[in-house]
Write a protein that binds this DNA or RNA. Structure first.
Length: 814
RNA sequence: GCCGAAGUGGCGGAACUGGUAGACGCGACAGUCUCAAAAACUGUUGGAGGGCAACUUCCGUGUCGGUUCGAGCCCGACCUUCGGCACCA
């Protein structure tokens, strides 16, 4: 009687042993090639659901595979621990965010340990601990010194009820998520990072292996567009500048400008509005302030605006053009002013219709003979009503007009970006305080490095309204100016948590450094990350910020690379009951009970098997029954002794070797291509074949043992506990995870026989088993000799014979 | 509206570079074991038709066309689902 399969016992047995032996700890002194395998660290929300496991298990399995292949693997784990939910818990339940977060981390760490991953826990990083955020603050100072951090007024979502600023995610259809007060826009002094300075480089992904999809999303986010800046003559007693500049991608339509539109927030508006228009303009601005970004940008909304009473002159035509304001113009893009060409832009067209403004055609639509347009003609075409440029094609005119403007000093070719500078200020408690002091005498003074970290006051009072408690922590706010020693006040805003996650991968390289953010030598050894895996939802936030951050510190001279992640892989998402898992839907699957019932290897294996990793899939308990059954079969296959009284059979041995080496090849190649579901399928097939071979009993015990050994090695990354237990029980030396990954022998894997596929006019008619490497001539003869084929040739004329790949023949008949 | 991904049995999914569609698993059905059930094991399982039978014919990868000796894969048009962006001048 063999011992029965009891995963609960050996899950903990081996996890304890591996931890005690420090089996998976990485160091930099190895002479093996390094491999930095990184999974996006989780936010400390409380517990991990199966979706987290789906992100983590396959990346662990892959890292284990690399480790067995001889790489010096670092696979660290940590916690993204600052953020709003902790603060909300504090407000709602009176728990301090620190306690709430640390309690969650404890539970998540327990869950992660039960996963049986090769995480090097000695390197754990927790972003809310002073030993970490001290360096987050230090990096802020570095960016500030480099001129990459600046303070400016910017509109924010303001909740008059809570008297605080809200993040975009907290604004639900224009209302505060907490008190349902309509949110308005208000200008506040905020800190920004100059990510736009890196716009060009961020839109390129030179030398990195990322999914095309993500690269496209990032390029669109950066939104580079080439165009022309055009100066319009402007003469107004209240304004010093004698011009108003606009950005356009269609300078070929400049002769068709019939009005101009400024963003309502444009600083000029106040100065140029005529007394008659003042009331209307002010009302309009007040209204658009009240509106949220979402409402304001809604495509369904009809375009409206107000005339300011002022005019500019189009230098090319000499026309006087009225200046309007409208909220479809964004202050933050281009110059905050657009030249309106209603004939060739649909928005301008709608606007012109509404207010009876002139529509002047300057690009002739095909077949146009001067009639009124029913909609804007936005395509390119031939220029008309455009002075010296008449008759020119649009694409030519773009260059010609820009050239002409440049010569006259009226404009220049330029590039505009959609991306905005990164607003990092949060009016929140639970984040890294921005290390800045305001002094009446000295102005903005950065906290000296030696005074870091700027610690969060522990005894802050959490207001039910959600207002930042830092503002009211007087012993925190009131300080002395590091420059003049006079009384000064601290910045009370904290940093966006994306700042914390922009450098955690550097900290993992030397997590215990006390006197610096990281050890340069160690970072040089490990970085950039070889394989970064995580959800695609971070495509344009975290992944763009982290790239910016690394480029910035490269230029500061802190690192010598500009891309943090060499290869990126996005897994899909796990759904449950046809819906995305979420607490509010109540369909969250917790892995703990499955682990307790079936053992962690069955859960790991099922997650690998349920579909292609990049596609995700639906969680189905019954499917996991299948992987559990398979692991049991493997257990029985290995544990029940192989017996044979038959003499070894030469052919059976060859078959077994071929099967083994074909499996090694398939599994290895699937690992390299991240095709984990087919990798498992190949191992299942191998198991099924081995069961049959065992029944037949026609190979020697030694040959059998070798095949079993290969099966265990190939399965080890996926089911580390089961294979370790079997490895031990079959008398093999600890640990299977320190063994070498099997290598296939192409000669042994080669097929000896082929199945010749015979088609007549592309339809399958027969299959013939033949020795491999047979000549084309022979293939033709054998195909024509087939009885099944003959019946389809009767009365037909053989036109052509096509032999493909030495294993398929197509007879073309008429 | 724009950008991107994907549509294959009852279900999850396989199919290298244009060459045997449905690997592997789930479910279902039948059987073995059992007093019985569960578990386990064995077999069948895309659809329709024909034959006592070993078998065999036709249809079949979202829809409609095309290229090709041959298309799930390539090209064109469309439909559906999902993800992202959303007045960016």
């Amino acid at each position: 009687m063999t011992a029965s399969y009891d995963p609960k016992v050996y899950d903990t047995k081996w996890q304890q042993r591996w931890a005690a032996d420090h089996l998976y700890e990485a160091d930099e002194t190895s002479d093996r090639p390094r491999w930095y395998a990184l999974t996006m660290f989780p936010y400390t929300s409380g517990d991990l659901h199966i979706g987290h496991w789906y992100a983590m298990v396959p990346s662990d399995v892959h890292a284990r595979f690399k480790r067995m292949q001889g790489y010096n693997v670092m696979h660290p784990m940590g916690f993204d621990a600052f953020g709003l939910p902790a603060e909300n818990a504090a407000i709602k339940r009176g728990i301090h965010p620190f306690q709430w977060t640390m309690k969650n981390i404890e539970n998540m760490r327990r869950q992660l340990k039960s996963m049986g991953a090769i995480y090097d826990w000695d390197r754990e990083v927790v972003t809310c601990l002073p030993e970490y955020y001290r360096w987050t603050q230090w990096f802020f100072l570095k960016l500030y010194e480099a001129g990459l951090a600046y303070r400016a007024k910017a509109p924010v979502n303001w909740c008059p009820g809570c008297r605080t600023v809200l993040a975009n995610e907290q604004v639900i259809s224009g209302e505060c998520e907490r008190c349902a007060t309509p949110v308005i826009h208000q200008d506040l002094e905020q800190w920004f990072f100059r990510i736009t300075r890196y716009a060009d480089e961020l839109a390129r992904h030179d030398g990195i292996d990322w999914p095309e999809r993500i690269k496209i999303m990032q390029r669109n986010w950066v939104g580079k567009s080439r165009g022309t800046e055009i100066s319009f003559a402007f003469d107004h007693p209240a304004v010093k500048d004698k011009e108003l500049r606009v950005f356009t991608t269609r300078p070929d339509t400049v002769y068709g400008v019939t009005f101009m539109v400024l963003a309502p927030e444009h600083p000029l508006v106040e100065k140029i509005t005529t007394p008659e228009q003042k009331a209307a303009v002010e009302a309009y601005i007040a209204r658009s302030r009240r509106e949220t970004e979402i409402e304001r940008l809604s495509t369904e909304k009809e375009k409206d605006g107000v005339f300011t009473g002022a005019y500019v002159t189009n230098r090319l035509t000499g026309d006087k053009v009225p200046l309007w304001i409208a909220d479809y113009v964004l202050a933050s893009y281009g110059t905050g002013v657009v030249m309106a060409v209603p004939a060739h832009d649909q928005r301008d067209f709608d606007f012109a219709r509404k207010y009876n403004l002139l529509v002047k055609v300057v690009i002739s639509p095909p077949g146009w003979s001067g009639e009124e347009l029913k909609e804007a003609y936005v395509e390119t075409g031939t220029l008309v009503n455009s002075g010296q440029f008449n008759g020119m094609a649009s694409d030519k005119a773009i260059g010609a007009i820009t050239g002409y403007l440049e010569k006259q000093g009226w404009g220049k070719a330029t590039v505009s970006y959609r991306i905005r500078d990164w607003l990092i200020s949060r009016q929140r408690y639970w984040g890294a305080p921005i290390p800045i002091i305001y002094c009446d005498k000295c102005g903005i003074v950065p906290v000296p490095e030696k005074d870091l970290p700027v610690l969060l006051p522990e005894d802050a009072e959490f207001k039910p309204g959600g207002e930042s408690p830092l503002k009211y922590a007087s012993h925190f706010v009131n300080t002395t100016c590091p420059k003049c020693g006079g009384p000064a006040k601290r910045e009370t805003d904290t940093m966006d948590t994306f700042m914390c996650s922009s450098w955690y991968f550097l900290r993992y390289c030397s997590p215990h450094e006390k006197d610096r953010a990281f050890d340069h030598e160690k970072v040089k050894y490990w970085m950039p990350v070889d394989l970064y895996t995580g959800g695609a939802e971070h495509a344009v936030m975290h992944l763009l910020y982290a790239r910016f951050f690394v480029k910035a510190i490269r230029d500061i001279g802190l690192v010598d690379f500009g891309e943090p992640f060499k290869k990126l892989f996005n897994q899909g998402i796990i759904i449950a009951q046809r819906q995305k898992m979420s607490k509010s839907r109540g369909n969250v699957i917790n892995p703990d009970s499955y682990v307790a019932e079936l053992g962690v290897d069955a859960v790991r294996t099922y997650l690998m098997f349920l579909g292609p990793w990049e596609q995700g899939g639906e969680w189905d308990d019954r499917g996991m029954g299948g992987t559990d059954r398979w692991l049991k079969r493997v257990w029985n296959l290995v544990m029940e002794p192989y017996q044979t009284d038959r003499p070894a059979d030469e052919k059976a041995l060859k078959d077994l070797k071929r099967l083994t080496h074909q499996t090694i090849r398939k599994v290895t190649e699937d690992f390299d291509g991240m095709h984990f579901n087919t990798m498992i399928a190949a191992l299942m097939e191998f198991t099924n074949d081995l069961i049959k071979i065992k029944e037949a009993g026609s190979v020697s015990v030694a040959d059998w043992e070798e095949a079993i050994q290969t099966l265990l090695l190939l399965l080890a990354p996926t089911a580390p506990h089961l294979t370790e237990e079997l490895w031990e029980r079959t008398g093999r030396p600890y640990s299977i995870h320190n063994q070498k990954w099997p290598v296939w022998d192409a000669e042994l894997a080669k097929e000896e026989e082929i199945t010749l596929v015979v088609q007549v006019n592309g339809k399958l008619r027969d299959r013939i088993t033949l020795p491999a490497g047979i000549s084309e001539e022979e293939i033709k003869l054998r195909a024509l000799a087939s009885d099944k084929v003959k019946t389809h040739l009767v009365g037909k004329e053989l036109v052509k014979v096509i032999v493909a790949g030495g294993r398929l023949v197509n007879l073309v008949v008429k």
